[in-house]
Structure formats: structure tokens, C-alpha cells
Computed example of a mutant assay.
Amino acid sequence: MRTFSLLKGMPIFELNTGSKIGEICDLAISKNGKVEGLLVKKGAVLKKTHIIYVQNVSSFGPDGVMINTREQLKPLHEKWDSYPFEGGHPPLLGKAMMTKEGEQLGLLEDVYFLEKVGTIVGYKCSDGFFSDIMEGKRVVKTDKPPTIGKDAIIVNVK
């Protein structure tokens, strides 16, 4: 299981050549609440964003992500059906988390997902700086895909 905060900035290497291809800058999360791919900044001066789909990742290591060949890296088109976790518009980071019963859980801060399949199994929520210090951050475990809306993410809490 991984979190986005552990992956952000991690290098991606090509197994065939040992070359560093780029660095992870964001996640692409589908409308049904799965991590569809990793967004990668590639290039020396003019960094362009590409996507590597989760099913094309060979392995997630502690110090790098490995893919078989750089051809698995696809240019990111203007129109795509995924939500960026951190960048872009609208990002999921900082969005209100609510239960189906109407309880506010806090603001989305991170996601826990299964690397091989991209299934999100939990969300880290924040109630604000002072509340986080006093009570700690809340990790919400889910068993069903969320409803991602304009103003909130609705989850079924285990």
C-alpha cells in the first residue's frame, strides 16, 4: 500500500536502459475512485507532463518506480476523464470529505492505494492545524468507490 505523499518527487526509471525518465508530480484518479495513473514531469528545461498507467508499472520501490520501457509513458492530453489529486483544476487535495450519513470527516490530505491495481483503500483527512495537533489526523478506510462531486467527496466508511 502506498500514499501519494510517499510517491511525489520519486524518480521513474526504465528497466531496459537504467535511464531516469522523469519524476512523479501527481496522481490521476478516475471518476470511480481508482488511481488510474501516475503523472510524470519529463524533460530537462521545458518539463512536460506525461502519464504512466498503474498497470504498466513494473514495480514500486522505496527509492524509485520502475517501468519496462519509456514507450509506456504517454503524453497527457488536454481532455482526460480523471481528476488530478494535487494540481490542475479541480484538484481533489483539500476537498471536503463527507460520509453517506452526512458526517464531515475533514479535508482530504492524502490517499492510500494498492499499487498494482490502483484501488484506493483509505483517505487521510485533516480538521485543521490545531485539531491535527490535539487529536491527530484521521484515516478513513473505505470499501466502496466514492462519489466525487464539485464540493465534496462522499465515502462509505467501514
Rank of each mutant, 00 (worst) to 15 (best):
A44S: 09
T147E: 15
T142C: 03
H50G: 08
I29F: 12
E101D: 15
T3I: 03
F85T: 01
V65W: 13
G22Q: 03
L108M: 04
L15C: 07
I148Q: 03
K100C: 03
N16A: 14
I12T: 09
I24Q: 01
P62V: 10
K47T: 01
P145G: 14
L105D: 00
V35H: 01
M10P: 09
K42A: 03
M134N: 11
Q72P: 01
P90K: 06
G43L: 00
K124M: 11
C125F: 05
K141N: 08
E103L: 09
G87V: 08
V117N: 09
G118A: 10
I133D: 05
E71G: 05
E78K: 09
T69V: 00
F130D: 01
M1N: 01
K124H: 02
I67L: 13
G136M: 00
G94S: 10
E115G: 01
M134G: 04
A96V: 15
F4V: 06
K144E: 14
D143E: 12
F113S: 06
V111Y: 07
G87N: 15
S82M: 07
L114T: 03
P90V: 01
V35K: 02
C25H: 13
G22D: 13
K31C: 00
M97E: 05
N68C: 05
K34P: 00
M1T: 11
G18F: 10
F113W: 04
T142S: 13
P75G: 07
V45E: 08
S19E: 12
E78L: 15
A96F: 13
S59F: 10
R2Y: 13
L92M: 10
K47W: 07
L38C: 05
D151Y: 13
K31A: 10
E115R: 02
N68I: 10
D127I: 03
N56Q: 13
S5G: 04
L108I: 02
N32D: 15
T99V: 09
L93A: 00
D110T: 03
P84M: 07
T119I: 05
G102L: 01
P146S: 04
K95G: 02
